[in-house]
Deep mutational scan, measured.
Amino acid sequence: MASQGTKRSYEQMETDGERQNATEIRASVGKMIDGIGRFYIQMCTELKLSDYEGRLIQNSLTIERMVLSAFDERRNKYLEEHPSAGKDPKKTGGPIYKRVDRKWMRELVLYDKEEIRRIWRQANNGDDATAGLTHMMIWHSNLNDTTYQRTRALVRTGMDPRMCSLMQGSTLPRRSGAAGAAVKGVGTMVMELIRMIKRGINDRNFWRGENGRKTRSAYERMCNILKGKFQTAAQRAMMDQVRESRNPGNAEIEDLIFLARSALILRGSVAHKSCLPACVYGPAVASGYDFEKEGYSLVGIDPFKLLQNSQVYSLIRPNENPAHKSQLVWMACNSAAFEDLRVLSFIRGTKVSPRGKLSTRGVQIASNENMDAMESSTLELRSRYWAIRTRSGGNTNQQRASAGQISVQPAFSVQRNLPFDKPTIMAAFTGNTEGRTSDMRAEIIRMMEGAKPEEMSFQGRGVFELSDERAANPIVPSFDMSNEGSYFFGDNAEEYDN
């Protein structure tokens, strides 16, 4: 993207840094990872977990959730003011799984939030270390993106479920800051804005008074975040219109849905970061690795190297396929839920299948599930090659597409044709070009129609051997075009429920 120079890199967003050079960025990201790792080690000690239990991804998720809940100030305040039966607002906890007599047992633990905050700050040299908290939120978000298709949420806001490739980060909490905003897809931002506008339509006082002023500035800020994701002048001009509207209503909703559809071809720039579970960072720190000293990046080879040398386990339900569970977590670790499966298959070195073909449910185990038949197995999170994460949407291309997802959002900077089903997408653009945004709409449609099938995206960008740390010898991959490109292809993934 041309304006790259004016933006802070995501590592800076990730670490609240002012302008830093590459070495400083690597050190501050490393410091953040160190903090998460030290916190995780301490929690495993508190909970008396064995090494194996500490490497269980379900335990990692519970521990991450506990610290996120302990620092969720708004919710904590709300819980104190609106006490609900049987919930102690000062405590947080969740299921911890232990191996007892050759069987997995679930144990519900409860801790004072104050105590968890103390352990977290102690692991982070006394700081609140917001960057580390956001990092864990993005890992949870990436896992949700890989596990669930947001059909219901899309339909509720009037969008087409086939636009799911635009929904990265749709389950990120509001408090995820600049680093969170960077990884949100165009569809996620559109959905947040539509929800806001709908509230304004239904509630006369939404934009009024002292609160209304705050609401208005939040609305304009979200519009600017979305505008910054678009790469064409016409899309940005249309966002200006939406932002400046005196009284946002149905016309703005129409414009936003139009823009979301246009992003299936004229893709937005959305950041991709490899955020790993805390149970990967903990053992690495415990083994003596100093992330701050060595430096770390979320968008280069580092996460690949770390996963190459990590042992992570997962509980497996009786009829689940461990290899499929591994694929789910591998995609989440690489922030690749909406990437082209052919690119992923090449990088991973084994075939990556669409969601609907995987015999696996989510990673988390519900409290009512029976533990008797639970097994555990090693997650295979290694890769054959590594590639640089991208934040450009890439230019655009036609490809055989599917009944489910009709476009992709690249996660890796790797040369390819970008699949999208042009006739299906263009069919949504018939007729409606009147109104105050008509010239911009016409211009956007013209650009979409001009998108050429034979153009290559990320020209000359390749993948790298894991021994090639400096990215000196790019390998331009070859793809098996007979395979499906979309992950949520004609899909039956479970729906995400809060």
Rank of each mutant, 00 (worst) to 15 (best):
T23L: 13
S359W: 05
P248C: 15
Y78G: 03
E115T: 03
N76K: 08
G209P: 03
E495C: 01
G268A: 08
G362S: 01
A278R: 02
G462T: 03
R441W: 09
R106G: 08
M66E: 08
Q364M: 15
S217L: 14
R117V: 13
S170G: 12
S383W: 01
A85H: 14
W330P: 06
V109M: 15
G485V: 12
R317Y: 03
N250L: 07
T45W: 06
L154R: 02
L418D: 00
K293E: 13
K91P: 02
V67Q: 05
T378V: 06
E64A: 03
Q409L: 00
R213L: 06
Y40V: 04
K103R: 14
Y487D: 04
R162N: 02
S367Q: 09
L172F: 10
S287N: 14
L306M: 13
V155C: 04
W207Y: 13
R162G: 08
L379I: 13
L256E: 05
K77C: 15
W386D: 02
T157I: 15
L56M: 14
E14R: 15
N432P: 10
A123V: 12
I445M: 04
M13V: 04
H135P: 08
M196I: 11
G460V: 00
R400C: 08
G126R: 12
R436A: 01
A337V: 12
S69K: 05
M371Y: 02
D302I: 01
D72H: 08
A27F: 06
Y97E: 11
G177A: 05
A387P: 03
K113H: 11
N125Q: 11
R208F: 01
S353G: 05
P161K: 06
N309L: 12
M105C: 14
L166M: 15
P453T: 11
Q398C: 06
W104S: 04
N432V: 10
G249T: 04
M447K: 10
K422D: 01
L110H: 06
M43W: 02
I388C: 07
D468P: 08
G169S: 04
E320G: 10
S413H: 05
E294Q: 15
I425K: 03
E244Q: 07
R8T: 01
T232W: 03
Y148D: 05
R118P: 06
P277D: 11
A428V: 06
A323P: 05
L256R: 04
M13Y: 11
V109W: 03
A22F: 02
A428R: 04
T424Q: 12
G249F: 05
A427T: 14
R55T: 08
L226N: 09
P453Q: 13
N211A: 14
N498Y: 01
D340I: 01
S3K: 01
R102A: 11
D290Y: 09
E81W: 11
E46D: 11
S217Y: 04
I425C: 15
W120C: 08
S478T: 02
L56N: 15
L79W: 04
S438M: 07
D340F: 08
E81Q: 05
D203Q: 06
R208Q: 05
E252A: 06
N125I: 09
H272A: 06
I425W: 00
G17L: 01
N247G: 12
R221C: 04
T23G: 13
T157L: 09
K98P: 03
M105H: 14
C44A: 12
K113D: 07
V67E: 12
A218V: 10
S377G: 07
K229I: 09
P318H: 15
S69N: 12
E292D: 04
V242L: 06
R8N: 00
P248V: 11
G212D: 08
A493W: 09
W139S: 08
R221P: 03
N124E: 10
R150D: 06
E107I: 05
Q398R: 15
P283F: 13
G249M: 08
G180N: 03
A123L: 09
E469Q: 15
I301L: 14
I201N: 11
A472N: 06
R175M: 12
K214G: 02
M66R: 11
E320H: 06
L108R: 07
P453K: 11
W139C: 10
T62Y: 06
A153C: 11
E254A: 09
E73P: 00
R213C: 02
P83R: 09
R8F: 00
G288M: 10
P161C: 06
P477W: 01
W207Q: 09
N125M: 13
V242A: 14
S392W: 09
I57P: 09
A263E: 05
S413R: 12
E210C: 13
A401R: 15
I475V: 15
V363Y: 01
V67W: 06
G268E: 09
P419A: 14
S367Y: 04
C164S: 13
T396W: 12
K87N: 06
G94D: 13
M189K: 04
R195C: 10
V312W: 10
G200T: 14
H135G: 06
W386K: 05
R117M: 14
D439I: 15
G187E: 06
A387V: 10
G35M: 05
K452S: 08
M167E: 02
L298Y: 04
N417I: 14
R317D: 13
Q459K: 14
D439P: 03
M136R: 00
S269D: 09
E449Y: 09
W330T: 03
L79R: 04
I475R: 01
Y10N: 13
F304W: 00
E14S: 01
T378K: 13
D101G: 09
R117W: 08
R436H: 13
C164D: 00
Q168E: 03
R400A: 07
V414C: 15
E484G: 03
M13S: 01
Q241C: 03
N417V: 09
R8E: 00
N397H: 08
M196G: 12
P419S: 02
P89G: 12
V67R: 01
M238F: 01
F39E: 04
P248N: 03
E339C: 03
E254N: 10
V463P: 00
M1T: 09
A471K: 01
K229Y: 03
N202I: 12
S297Y: 08
G200D: 03
L172G: 01
M374A: 05
I365F: 12
K229L: 03
M136K: 01
M163C: 14
N321E: 02
S407W: 04
L259Q: 08
G462P: 08
W120E: 11
M159F: 01
T350Q: 10
S353T: 12
A153F: 08
E454D: 04
C275N: 12
S176G: 14
L68A: 10
R152Q: 11
L68V: 09
H140N: 11
S287F: 09
V476W: 00
S28V: 00
G462E: 14
G450T: 15
S269H: 10
E339W: 09
T215N: 10
R117N: 03
N205C: 15
I25F: 05
C279M: 09
E294W: 02
F429H: 02
K273G: 04
G288P: 08
L61A: 03
S359F: 04
Y296N: 11
V285D: 07
T232A: 08
M456C: 12
M374R: 02
R436W: 04
V476H: 00
D128W: 00
F479V: 10
T6A: 12
D203V: 03
A472V: 09
A237N: 04
E484W: 03
P410A: 15
A85Y: 14
G431N: 05
T424R: 00
K357R: 12
G460M: 14
V270Y: 05
T134F: 04
R199C: 09
R348Y: 05
S50N: 07
E369Y: 13
S367C: 05
E443V: 12
R416F: 01
I138N: 07
S353L: 13
A123E: 09
T62C: 11
Q12Y: 02
I406W: 06
T15P: 04
R102D: 04
I444E: 05
S287D: 10
V29D: 12
P410F: 01
D497G: 12
Q231Y: 01
D302M: 01
R121Q: 07
M371T: 06
E53Q: 11
E469M: 05
E64P: 12
R216K: 14
K87Q: 08
Q409D: 00
R261H: 07
A131N: 11
P318D: 06
E254P: 07
M43N: 15
G37A: 10
K273R: 09
E495H: 07
D468Q: 04
A153E: 07
V67C: 08
M105I: 10
A179L: 05
A284P: 13
I194D: 12
T157F: 02
T424M: 08
N492M: 10
M43R: 05
Y313Q: 13
L276Y: 08
S392Q: 02
T350D: 12
I316L: 15
Q327P: 08
K98Y: 01
R446Q: 06
Y385P: 14
L226I: 10
S84T: 13
A178S: 10
S217P: 00
A237K: 05
K184W: 07
V280T: 12
D439V: 11
